[in-house]
């Protein structure tokens, strides 16, 4: 049965995630008992490091792979639970602002990536995939776009490898930059949500900075994810006009099909919280469920990052992606800092 096949991998995610949490707590307890100030390394980082170590030394055995691949499912469940920590007003204000930022980000990213793609002589469809991957949602956007624009498997795997490698890099780089710039939790969370590729990496980068930053990173990233259908549809129409992809007949149905449904769950739970449907202990329990679900995700981020596989994909798509990412990181940072007083960040 399907669930039975997934069980070993899900257990592995839970063990690695819990080992990360246990390590953080043990180090803190040791420091306290011995009156020593030890650096506080968050459970998020430990879980990712343990996963990375396994994936890049012994590799994940085949028995565990179907379950490890569920890490994005737990992420989506975690995001729905996280709705409990938002009031609808915040979601509308910050989510709406995020959508505006995403629109600007998209325009700049598409123009820049197209120019870079030409400079580095990448295939136009690979360039489209890199632009979609770096501006919206990383791997899921690339998968959604691949079918719609009729791209090669090879182009899609190049784009995914580049986006994953850059996501892994951002995971460590963003919190360090955020601390160096003295950003507050909300500002950093919004920045990570808008600039870090892949929802799992954006959530992890935010949570590495602080719990509150993780919450706002999810909000901004969720707004970004919601635009996936529109962007993929835009590209599909463009490539159909070039007679290099199939025409999409029912555009409304296409948009609905590509829309990430967990966003609706997140909004619903946030609405329930705003209407006061949860008692304080209930809201705390649901928020904790979200943390546990994210813990499985963070373990999965490490386990699925295979550095050797990324090396095999070659440097050019990675360089194009990296230049684009730096530009997007700078642009989104400027937008967040500029809009901070207006948004009360």
């Amino acid at each position: 049965m399907n669930l039975l096949r997934k069980l070993p991998g899900i257990l592995l995610l839970a063990v690695i995630g819990y080992a990360g949490k246990f390590t953080e707590q043990s180090i803190a307890a040791y420091g306290k008992a011995h009156h020593t100030a030890l650096p506080n390394i968050e459970y998020v980082l430990w879980a990712i490091i343990f996963g990375l170590l396994i994936a890049n030394t012994v590799r994940v055995p085949a028995l565990f792979r179907p379950g490890v691949d569920t890490y994005e499912f737990w992420l989506k469940i975690g995001i729905v639970f996280l709705g409990v920590r938002f009031v609808v007003g915040d979601v509308v204000k910050l989510g709406g602002a995020s959508l505006l930022f995403v629109a600007i980000e998209l325009g700049v990213s598409i123009a820049l990536m197209t120019w870079l793609g030409k400079k580095f002589q990448l295939s136009p469809k690979l360039t489209s995939l890199l632009a979609i991957g770096s501006s919206i949602c990383g791997v899921s956007a690339i998968i959604a776009a691949k079918g719609a624009i009729d791209a090669d498997d090879e182009d899609a795997s190049y784009a995914m490898a580049a986006v994953l490698a850059l996501g892994a890099f951002s995971l460590f780089a963003f919190p360090a930059i955020g601390h160096a710039l003295g950003m507050n939790d909300k500002m950093f969370g919004m920045w990570a949500g808008l600039a870090v590729d892949n929802t799992a990496e954006a959530t992890a980068a935010g949570t590495l900075f602080s719990d509150t930053a993780g919450k706002f990173a999810v909000l901004a990233k969720t707004a970004r994810n919601a635009t996936i259908g529109f962007v993929v549809l835009g590209y599909a129409i463009y490539w159909a006009k070039q007679s290099q992809a199939k025409e999409i007949a029912r555009k409304g149905a296409f948009l609905w099909e590509k829309f990430p449904k967990f966003v609706l769950g997140f909004l619903l739970v946030s609405l329930m919280a705003t209407l006061g449907w949860f008692t304080k202990p209930q809201a705390a329990d649901i928020a904790n469920l979200s943390r546990w679900a994210f813990l499985l995700t963070f373990a999965g981020v490490g386990l699925r990052t295979d550095l050797r596989e990324m090396k095999k994909q070659g440097m050019r798509p990675f360089v194009v992606g990296a230049i684009g990412e730096f530009a997007i990181a700078g642009l989104t940072l400027a937008m967040i800092v500029g809009a901070a007083p207006l948004l009360g960040l």
Binding site: I77, F81, K261, V269, W277
Partner: peptide
């Protein structure tokens, strides 16, 4: 009709929230 994993994530999360609200789930610490 087969539901996508996306929908399943929403259904499972809402079911768990329902259990919390009904008091059928033990307290979840972090």
């Amino acid at each position: 009709m087969k539901l996508s994993l996306d929908w399943w994530s929403v259904i499972l999360a809402l079911a768990a929230i329902g259990l919390v609200m009904a008091g059928a789930m033990p307290h979840i610490p972090w």
